[in-house]
Simulated assay, not measured.
Amino acid sequence: MNRYMRGMTNGGMIRANGTQALCLDEMRARVPAIFAAAAHESRSERYVYIPTETVLRGLMAEGFEPFFAQQSKTRVEGKEAFTKHMVRLRHASRVTSGDEAHEIILINAHDGTASYQMISGVFRFVCANGLFAGDTFGQAKVMHSGDAESKVIDAAYTVLEDADRIMNDVQEMKAVELQHDEQQAFAKAVHALRFDDPEKAAVSADQLLLPRRYEDRRGDLWSTFNVLQENTIKGGQRGFTRDAAGHRRRASTREVRGIDQSKALNRALWTLAEEMARLKGAPLASAA
């Protein structure tokens, strides 16, 4: 199994409709792990329980608004209300920037599987697609100890400082034109990331380049990157696999729903886009 797909889970999820932020009641109904009343019983006395709800309310008071929330499933009975969860937020001062918006991604868990993590991301309105920025941009982690609430809010502002650099990178990617063979090379690299054995995958690398909407029929790096990212993460592309007897069977690619898997694969794709820009002689400022 591909390392980006191990432990893939399919938990509760809610996404805002358009530019209207989510309210806490909406999130509570679909992503209850955010609102856990206590830490899971497996945690020791050294574990400082700071509910995500408290942190989220603090972030909202500072102008950070939630637009997406998700939690992981678990096979361990009794852990459903404590699992890893993710919230994507936008600051009121930076809700939109043309066709994209900078986002701050909060990841936490109340069962000891994650510290508080804050990571930069980009939301693309045309496809309602949320991306993670690459490893070029820092991420902040806050352990469950001490004054975690204020530390997470401080971390959010630290990550927010990357907003200008990230949105500048987006504009630079839009200015880089790719030839068809360069798009194919990009797709092959993405295909190899997504599938352990590309020869046995249900879809080919070229299929990952098929746009889902007219607006993405462009040859620039940003459009190509988004087509590849959307097809890789959202899945749903149809193709064929072969069983042990060699018979062809219809199959479709799976959506990447696990929080850790989505994060790792998204960040790897962003790094590939940075490398493609460098190979084209237009290195992104943040990666220079």
Rank of each mutant, 00 (worst) to 15 (best):
M1P: 06
R3H: 05
Y4W: 08
M8L: 12
T9I: 06
N10L: 07
N10G: 13
N10V: 05
R15I: 15
N17G: 05
N17Q: 15
G18I: 12
D25A: 14
M27T: 09
R30E: 12
F35M: 01
A37E: 15
A39K: 01
H40P: 00
S42F: 02
S44N: 13
S44H: 10
V48F: 00
E53P: 13
T54W: 00
G58S: 08
G58R: 04
L59T: 05
M60R: 13
A61N: 04
G63W: 04
F64E: 09
E65R: 15
P66F: 02
F68W: 02
Q70E: 07
S72W: 00
T74C: 09
R75D: 12
F82C: 02
T83G: 03
K84A: 03
H85L: 03
L89V: 12
A92W: 10
S93E: 10
S93Y: 11
V95I: 15
T96D: 07
T96F: 11
A101H: 05
E103F: 03
L106D: 00
I107V: 14
N108D: 09
A109R: 02
D111E: 15
Y116K: 07
Q117N: 09
Q117K: 10
Q117F: 11
S120I: 11
G121L: 07
V126H: 03
G130P: 07
L131K: 05
F132M: 14
G134A: 01
G134Y: 00
T136V: 09
Q139P: 01
A140C: 14
K141C: 07
M143H: 06
M143C: 06
H144F: 00
H144L: 00
H144G: 00
H144W: 00
S145M: 11
D147M: 02
D147Q: 10
E149W: 03
S150Y: 06
S150A: 15
I153E: 04
L160K: 06
L160E: 00
L160T: 01
D164G: 05
R165D: 05
D169F: 10
V170D: 01
M173W: 04
M173R: 11
M173P: 11
M173K: 12
K174W: 15
V176R: 03
E177Y: 11
H180I: 10
Q184P: 01
F186H: 05
A187Y: 02
K188W: 15
A189E: 05
A192Q: 09
R194M: 06
P198E: 06
K200P: 01
A201P: 11
S204I: 13
A205D: 02
L208I: 11
L209E: 12
L209D: 08
L209W: 12
Y214K: 15
E215V: 10
G219A: 13
G219C: 11
G219D: 14
D220V: 10
L221A: 05
V227R: 04
E230H: 07
N231A: 07
G235E: 01
G235Q: 03
Q237I: 15
Q237P: 00
R238D: 09
R238L: 08
T241I: 14
R242G: 02
A244W: 11
G246I: 06
R250Q: 13
R254S: 07
D260T: 14
A264I: 13
A264G: 06
L265Y: 03
L265I: 09
L269N: 02
L272T: 11
E274H: 14
E275K: 15
A277K: 06
A287T: 12
A288R: 13
A288E: 08
